[in-house]
Design a protein around this nucleic acid. Structure first.
Lengths: 186, 186
DNA sequence: AACAATGTTTACCATTTGGTAAAAAGCAAT
DNA sequence: ATTGCTTTTTACCAAATGGTAAACATTGTT
């Protein structure tokens, strides 16, 4: 929980009382490897802070292949901009995870009580989403080897913990190609 | 101006007085084809509504190539999440454009006067950025022909107005490849 | 009309990536 | 240790894309 508060404080000031309130409104849950946090078709309107572990967000393309859209690793806060539409993606723990959750309802209470809560949260979410976009952008204009090297820089702790196929689909290549690339690099 | 108001009203209610206030705080500017709206290195902290025409947002990669990151076409409202950092991208009109601008200062005044202005704006910007991300995501996992067809669907009116090279770099391929793809399609 | 400048297409071959299949390696359970 | 299951690597060839250069088309200027 402290980690989340610390993370939030980077984006705006909060006094002790406010911090306490946020802690009260947040719940900690654990997920085992391969558990789903939310599945496609369900609503997802919580705020999630990844305290430990890594989630992946993936969907199925028209050929039925799993496409990993991105990874949410530790110290990462995110939510769903389309709170009232069913998800089209799966959020799955790919390692054991500790998540801190603030429900929509509690979120609204915080919003009414803490003056700049909305502003802080918007900064965080906007930043997160822009980072994801930038990362995704760079995936389009580079070749697969460069993309993999960039991935390694961004997620140095992931490569040994997640299946090759997740990374391959994230990079937009087959796992055979990724295996070949790995070989050429070393 | 009416177009912008109409667009904003999709995301929240405003009374006549509020609409009038927004109109007062917004300025209309025109750009000729190939003019720059903002260049890399400058600050960009306005809110922009593309009333007529198309902008492209591009940057230079490590090989000095222009990479078109996305296109902002008509009826599109956007801003810069990193208001206090110099831009790394160029925003260029690729057709004659009419833009409606709200400066940072005026934006803050609106924020103080119109209660749900922040909330409305956040909805719009969040939605815009998520759309861009989704579009970009699909660019990673599909082959170049599919990507081009998707581009045609998303921007049907662009294809005849912008250089091939812009589209090619947006799709992450060379212009020769795009030319070949065009030939194969027809 | 002639010219230059720019944008687009084509051609050639090299390189990268995909698709299929098999082999090898890793892992869990017994 | 053996078995069965999953993941990763390799190999082979096909297909897609890149790189270079030239031809062709378009546009604007004089």
């Amino acid at each position: 929980m402290e980690e989340m508060i610390e993370y939030i404080l980077q984006f705006g000031d909060l006094n002790k009382q406010q911090i306490r309130l946020i802690s009260d409104k947040a719940t900690e849950i654990t997920l085992s490897k391969d558990d789903y946090f939310v599945e496609a078709g369900k609503l997802f309107n919580e705020i999630v802070f990844v305290s430990e572990g890594v989630l992946r967000i993936y969907y199925y393309n028209k050929d039925g292949e799993e496409i990993t859209k991105y990874f949410a690793d530790e110290k990462h806060l995110f939510s769903n901009p389309y709170k009232d539409e069913p998800l089209t993606e799966y959020l799955q723990a790919i390692t054991d995870c500790k998540l801190i959750i603030i429900t929509q309802k509690n979120w609204e209470e915080l919003s009414n009580t803490i003056l700049n809560w909305d502003s802080i949260l918007n900064k965080i979410l906007q930043k997160g989403i822009v980072e994801k976009m930038d990362r995704r952008s760079s995936l389009v204009s580079e070749n697969a080897t460069t993309r993999y090297l960039t991935f390694l820089e961004k997620f140095p702790n992931l490569v040994n913990h997640v299946p090759l196929s997740y990374i391959a689909s994230y990079l937009g290549i087959t796992q055979q190609s990724l295996s070949r690339i790995r070989k050429n690099i070393s």
